[in-house]
Design a protein around this nucleic acid. Structure first.
Length: 106
DNA sequence: ACCGAGGTATCGG
DNA sequence: CCGATACCTCGGT
């Protein structure tokens, strides 16, 4: 069932404050929620897309510019799709899976 | 590079 | 309740 937790609502709110063509790190997001160190909690909350496509989880990447995962996969066609979506917004990644322009991260 | 800890939610025992 | 799992990150060795 699509049960949305309070934590997820917070994540949703913070993510809604991220404009298109911009990305945020799991840690930065968690920090915004008031849960420093809760990067994993954010990842856990976004593991599935309960509010898809209303919730642009592809806009959330690693703090080191890593693309992270997508739809429960940390590699594979799903990740390739995430790269595509971000590239369509002007956010391009390296072959190494690294953000080309870290200045795009909030 | 490898290991462990840390915050949140779900699942099995 | 306890341990394991999961789109992570940091610090020590």
């Amino acid at each position: 069932m699509n049960r949305v937790t309070p934590f997820q609502e917070k994540v949703y709110g913070a993510l809604a404050g991220v404009p298109r063509g911009r990305v945020i790190s799991y840690r930065g997001l968690a920090r915004r929620l008031g849960c420093p160190g809760g990067a994993r909690a954010v990842g856990r909350a976004l593991r599935e897309n309960p509010l898809a496509p209303h919730l642009p989880c592809h806009r959330v990447i690693g703090s080191d510019g890593r693309i992270g995962g997508f739809r429960g996969a940390v590699a594979g066609p799903e990740i390739a799709r995430k790269r595509e979506l971000l590239a369509a917004e002007g956010v391009k990644f390296d072959e190494n899976g690294r953000l080309r322009e870290p200045s795009r991260m909030l």
